[in-house]
Design a protein around this nucleic acid. Structure first.
Lengths: 192, 192
DNA sequence: CGGATAAGTAAACGGTTGTTTACGTCACAT
DNA sequence: ATGTGACGTAAACAACCGTTTACTTATCCG
């Protein structure tokens, strides 16, 4: 009943392990995920995790750096303030986009991984400020507010599953998120 | 901190276990927290967890329902839209307030606890809508946006620790959060 | 071919987990 | 004062964790 005719493809199984691990780590967290869970979902033997990624923590770091690369690449193109809501919602609704963001808040307890996480978020906030040209002295803080909203949104929709947010259509999220973003990042929010 | 001459006080040690568990579960998550961690932080023996709370999961549920009660009680008084930002920030900066909110997103994998979590958040959103008198058809969704922002804020400040958000003063958060809330919940967000 | 090597598996390893058991020991009513 | 029951502890328990080992088998180059 096991893999009767399994093709021998190192790169393929490595990718399968990465996919399964990303999914499990993102949805269930690092500690709650066992290496046997991952191996089963990938359909391979447990020991291959140690072989290809050194350890469970090595596999997690591979997931994290992969997510970081995709994250950076997906937000690298110039962001305009009025297109930002729709762009963000598209990433938040996309399955791999959700996984990416959720992985950024999962922790294995490793200090280096935590630093990577902080750098990615800080970097995103800085690029957001640069793209919007906001000059307020708390611009960076406000950009991180946007990121916090996105993070909380994915959490409440995916992990917690509170309605009606969880079942909301992609289009239903664009306008409210737009209100949040303009509320936070419009050039002169307040008089004086 | 001194457990040398431990008084025999069932209610006291029960409370100590609850405090330690709340702290550990909120900051490290359910799976990453061991019963021995909790017992050590409480300064008592491990077996008392089973005695007083049946199991680790029973202890978690006790933490959760306790947090739910405090949560409901703290937001029960009438909320006004203009005082909401400062009130929320006060709760988000308060240590027990953070713990309360973080516990709401930690999961033990138990379905009943997950339902409790969803109900609390839904309930908060509904009360927020009632308090603001918002009549938009996506009012509930927008109220949950506010909650998502609060959740993400606590996460990024406490768990992830990204700067400058993590080190931001309580007062620095009021105005941006106010912009988010008015952006989401003001009666007529858009011209038409 | 055929054998060398990479790919995959099953089983076992020590350590840790949550939980239970057996046993001290303090407090309080009588 | 005293024994009885609640409170607390140490140790043992089976099950599970991540990891390693020993082994089988497919693949490919000569």
């Amino acid at each position: 009943m096991t893999q009767q005719a399994r093709r021998r493809d190192a790169a393929g199984t490595r990718r399968a392990l990465l996919d399964a691990a990303r999914h499990r780590f993102a949805t269930n967290g690092y500690a709650a995920t066992t290496v046997r869970d991952i191996a089963d979902e990938a359909g391979v033997n447990v020991s291959l995790i140690s072989r290809y990624f050194m350890s469970k923590e090595g596999l997690f770091e591979a997931c994290l750096t992969g997510a970081v690369d995709e994250f950076d690449r997906s937000v690298t193109p110039g962001i305009t303030l009025d297109e930002l809501p729709r762009t963000m919602v598209r990433h938040l609704a996309d399955d791999s986009g959700k996984t990416r963001l959720l992985l950024l808040l999962r922790s294995s307890g490793d200090a280096a991984a935590d630093q990577v996480r902080r750098n990615v978020m800080r970097n995103f906030a800085e690029r957001l400020v640069a793209a919007t040209g906001l000059e307020a002295d708390d611009a960076l803080l406000r950009a991180e507010f946007v990121l916090a909203t996105a993070l909380g949104l994915v959490l409440m929709r995916t992990v917690i599953g509170v309605q009606p947010l969880a079942a909301a259509d992609q289009e239903d999220l664009v306008t409210p998120l737009g209100d949040v973003i303009t509320g936070l990042l419009r050039p002169t929010p307040r008089a004086s």
